[in-house]
Simulated assay, not measured.
Amino acid sequence: MDASLLTLLGLGPDEDAVYRLLVDRPDSEPAAFAGPLSDHAVASALDALVERGPASADRPDVDGPFRYRAASPVLALGPLLEARRSALHRVESLVGDLSERHRSAQAHASGAPVEVLSGPAAIRRRLLTMQRQARSEVCTLVPARHAPAVLTFADNHEEADSD
């Protein structure tokens, strides 16, 4: 399991590590997390988790230490996941808008409604990108007077992976 995935939801690395431990060890005291993190790092992570909601703390005995419990991952992390998902959808829309603006600017600059690529390296990059994004196949035309030396079979990892 990737130890940093929860950082993609906005948790810090220490919060990620402590939350994962809390999931497996409900009603734990901070001392139960002794190990790779310092006492200060554990305390800071627990405070942040309680403040943000993925954990709760209570003191069963007035003079005793706080005990911590992880909130349900679906309830605690679900809203963070949905916020990131929403942000990614906005970025995806922006990429689409930028792509359309780029295509339009290229068409006006070249006088043709096509993307103009210069040189074998640019053509190779575009073909590989098209192969990665294709759902079924990529067809190309190579004029008879030109040798198709842009992308050799040995360099075409996407083609080999799709078999």
Rank of each mutant, 00 (worst) to 15 (best):
A41H: 09
P79S: 14
L81Q: 06
R84T: 12
A83V: 11
A41R: 03
T129Y: 02
S110R: 07
P120H: 15
L80V: 09
A134F: 07
E137V: 11
S72A: 13
S86Q: 10
V62Y: 04
E82Y: 14
P60D: 01
L75S: 12
A112Y: 00
S99Y: 09
C139G: 01
R125I: 06
G64C: 11
A48L: 00
L141T: 01
S44G: 03
T129C: 06
H108M: 03
A105H: 11
P113S: 09
A57E: 12
G53P: 14
A48Y: 02
S44Q: 04
R135Q: 07
L46E: 00
V95Y: 08
V91P: 13
L77P: 01
R52I: 11
A105V: 15
L128E: 03
G78K: 04
Q133G: 05
L46I: 05
V50F: 05
S44F: 02
L75V: 04
A112I: 15
S118K: 14
D58S: 08
D58H: 01
E100Q: 15
S110T: 13
P60S: 00
L77W: 01
A121F: 10
A112R: 15
F66D: 12
A70P: 00
S99V: 12
L117H: 04
L88D: 09
E115I: 07
C139Q: 07
A48M: 01
P79Q: 12
R126I: 01
R67Q: 12
E100P: 05
G53I: 15
D47H: 10
R132Q: 13
R126H: 10
R126P: 05
V114R: 14
C139Y: 03
V142K: 00
A112K: 15
R84D: 12
F66E: 13
R124H: 06
R69N: 06
E115F: 10
E100L: 15
A48F: 01
Q106T: 09
V42G: 00
E92H: 12
P65R: 05
A57C: 05
P79N: 12
A76W: 06
G53F: 08
I123C: 02
G64I: 11
Q106V: 13
S99I: 11
A41V: 02
A83N: 10
V91I: 15
P113F: 13
E100K: 11
P143L: 05
R52K: 12
D61F: 07
L88Y: 10
D61G: 04
R90V: 14
A43P: 02
R69L: 01
S110V: 13
R101M: 08
Q131M: 08
A76P: 00
A43R: 12
S104H: 07
D97L: 14
H89T: 13
R125E: 13
P60W: 02
R67L: 06
T129P: 00
L75H: 09
L88H: 14
C139P: 00
V114F: 14
D63Y: 03
V138C: 03
L81D: 06
P54D: 03
V91E: 08
L81N: 02
R69F: 04
L141G: 07
L127P: 00
G111D: 09
R135P: 04
E115K: 04
M130F: 03
G64T: 02
A71I: 05
T129D: 07
V42S: 02
G96V: 07
L81S: 04
G53C: 11
R84I: 14
V116G: 03
